[in-house]
Write a protein that binds this DNA or RNA. Structure first.
Lengths: 79, 79, 79, 79
DNA sequence: CACTGGAAAATGCCGC
DNA sequence: GCGGCATTTTCCAGTG
């Protein structure tokens, strides 16, 4: 690989590492918020479920909930 | 699925749970071996690394290794 | 450890690898069941949720569901 | 849950979601860099390995490395 | 005995 | 649409 490509490679790697570092900081910030929430008496497992729920689009979410209900009922019925 | 095949569903769930139970037993067996190894003076963190290393080794021969070498050299050269 | 008990080390590593291999087979078996279930029209994402739900002991499960309800209501109320 | 706590809950959830959104943007930025690199003829799989390698290197100095060497030698000797 | 950190598993995502 | 990779979540040993 030529010198020019080597410089290009280095630039790519460093740009990615820079952004990954920023991402890491954000992940730590999120962790801090959970820690603080826990100290304030919130149940962090439930908080995580809330975040996950809100991430799913409402349609998928209600559809999935409905199917879950069906399956649980079916299991109940056959027990 | 219009009506849920309850018996089929139950069978699926129970088969999965059965196998997961077996998997759990195996995981405990592995844990026991590590515990015993530790009692015999082995460093279990290193044991885990050994296992991981041996798992990856078979994939070690490839074009990709060569390209990796090229890239690492290029980074070295431009540093 | 001054000198490494090589035979003992080898035995440990091989026992662990043997059991991990068995675990891997079981994991594949589980994957096969999900695949088959999907072919039979089941929603595998929901199946996974069912399995996860049943894994939690009923007490924890209802407690967590209750807290989830509280939080969702609170979010609704403050919106 | 009281109104005050409800507001606190909402604040927590929104702060987390905000930061997760920023993280998502950064992840997309990284993806863009890989895409561009690929267009320039780089092997992105190898690029990812480079990044991963460089992430782990700082931990490379330790007693653990020495023990790892001992164990690998012992395995070699008993093979 | 709760908490933290790290390893393993599960889930989701992106490229082919 | 599938397989492989990366992220997330879960689990567990170690530690205070």
């Amino acid at each position: 690989m030529s010198t020019v490509a080597a410089d290009q490679l280095r630039a790519i790697v460093e740009r990615i590492e820079r952004i990954e570092e920023e991402k890491k900081v954000l992940a730590e910030n999120i962790g801090d918020i959970y820690t603080e929430a826990k100290l304030n008496g919130f149940n962090t497992a439930v908080l995580r479920r809330i975040i996950a729920l809100r991430k799913k689009d409402p349609e998928t979410r209600s559809e999935e909930e409905a199917v879950l209900g069906l399956y649980l009922d079916a299991l109940e019925a056959s027990s």
